[in-house]
């Protein structure tokens, strides 16, 4: 229910009642989005959209920084990482664990 997905804003328009609207591209699907809560959003920005409303701009620098932090994380633990259990889910009729 709290699902919100990032889309790329490419057009800003006002509707006939003066509500700030825009159109955003979600991996090829284009949707109308209400931009009243993100007055700072401009075409080219990524916005986080929930039930047709942009709730936030996606901060690309922060995204980049978080990701680099993950990639730079110590390699140490990797040796203990579990094997992915490819036998899951069990085939029909197979005894489950």
């Amino acid at each position: 229910m709290c699902l919100a997905i990032p889309g790329k804003l490419f057009e800003i328009t006002d509707d006939s009642h003066g509500v700030r609207m825009g159109r955003a591209n979600f991996g090829g699907v284009v949707k109308q989005v209400c931009l009243e809560y993100t007055p700072e959003a401009k075409p080219g920005d990524y916005i986080l959209v929930h039930v047709g409303f942009a709730l936030s701009r996606v901060d690309e620098e922060e995204a980049e920084r978080t990701y680099r932090l993950l990639e730079a994380m110590k390699q140490l633990g990797e040796l203990d990482a579990p094997e992915i259990d490819s036998s899951w889910p069990p085939e029909a009729g197979e005894q489950s664990r």
Binding site: P6, F26, G27, V58, L70, M73, G77, I84
Partner: peptide, 18 residues
């Protein structure tokens, strides 16, 4: 999709669980 696919990276997931 940008900001979704990169957060489903298996190698990084195993790194964090490690």
């Amino acid at each position: 999709m940008k900001f979704l696919d990169e957060y489903r990276n298996e190698a990084l997931a195993l790194k964090i669980t490690g």
